[in-house]
Simulated assay, not measured.
Amino acid sequence: MYKDPSGLLIGHYTPTSVILAEVAHLSSSFDHKYKDDANGKDSSIKLMAKQIIDTVTVQSALGHSQKEILNFTNNGIYSAQKGIYTDVVQIDTHSQLPTFMYYLGLMDKKHEQLFLRKKEIENMPDYKSDPKLIEEREAIKLELNIYCSTNDTGEGRYVNRLAAMYSGMNFIFDSMHYWGLSNVLNCVNDGYILQIKDDGDFNKQYQDFKQQWQSEFPLLTFSKKHWKYAIINGTQDYILINNSNDYKCRSSQLSTKAFYHQATGKSLDKLKQSEIDNDAFKYAQEKEKVAMMTLYNNLFSSMEPSLYGSYGKLENLNETKEILDKAGVTEANFLPVK
């Protein structure tokens, strides 16, 4: 990636429209708000419409079977293809904003030292088994996220972050081209979900991918996880699942966040840790677990004969059979179907 004189990291595939938006948004003289005469309130200025990939990059006609749409926003880059998919991988970029702030020279000395300390902890063997190191790393991570924010309203931990946002967005856009845009099922700011065809080929590609980017940014790190199934309803509305106990739920209706809001009328994203109702939170977590077990058993387990049904279902069948035996019902037409 190229660092221009204004301090922006521009990638090989970065659209010109994004560069122009970066220059405007990161200028101290640019006013992000305007007075909306219709309602008399301040509204946020959006400089870019959604980008249709075929108009942003030059590719062969066979490169895209459909026109992919990516939404470049003030808060990142987003894209989603709705559907149910098999054999996917989620790739996440660790501490994307702090990393690019560090490489752009935007950090003060205090936070630069914190960033390097966090990387030092993460490189320690078995640090995840040391509670003190885990606690220290989490504290640094939170401090860096707040420091990278230019819009910390105090309404909880999750806020829009603009510092180094565009450089991170340009990195994500360039890295997605490595995999092929048509293979990207979902992109959320600092990570994306890919559909893959062969695990062996992918693992080799992934090692090449890491080597390529870490040769340019040595402190840039990634993680990946394979999933059997993905249900994608939107950029921030999806479920990844391997079985009823191994899943990642970001569903707007079936997640812990959704059930907590349903129970309390409050958003977890806007609550500080001390404001969270622990009983309601445990209730919401349990609801999510039950929802994921039900979803998996009914939607996917039939694809895997060895996992068909569940222990609970078999117990119910045995109990039903015992009741029928006691009642003297022995004809096949009355027996439960397995």
Rank of each mutant, 00 (worst) to 15 (best):
K33L: 15
G328D: 04
K287Y: 04
E331W: 09
F259A: 06
D54I: 03
L62G: 07
L26Q: 14
E288L: 04
M303S: 12
K282F: 12
K141L: 05
A61P: 05
A24N: 08
N145R: 10
S149L: 02
A21P: 02
G328V: 10
V88R: 00
F72E: 09
T73L: 10
L240N: 03
Y158H: 06
Y296F: 15
M292I: 10
A139Q: 13
M293S: 15
L62R: 11
Y103H: 12
V159G: 00
Y103E: 12
N278L: 14
F72T: 08
M292E: 12
M176Q: 09
Y166E: 04
S60E: 12
F173P: 01
F281M: 11
L314N: 08
T86W: 01
W213V: 03
H111L: 04
T57A: 14
H177G: 15
L133P: 01
L47W: 07
S43R: 15
I323C: 03
D92C: 06
L116P: 01
D325G: 04
W213N: 02
G312F: 07
Y2T: 12
Q236F: 00
T73H: 07
S310E: 04
E275I: 09
I53V: 15
P5Q: 10
K46N: 15
T320L: 14
F209H: 04
D36H: 07
L62D: 14
Q205G: 05
T150C: 06
I121G: 06
K197W: 00
L194G: 01
I10R: 06
L133Q: 08
S215V: 02
M124C: 09
K46I: 11
G76R: 05
T235L: 01
Y229E: 10
G40D: 08
D237M: 08
L9R: 07
F217S: 02
L185H: 01
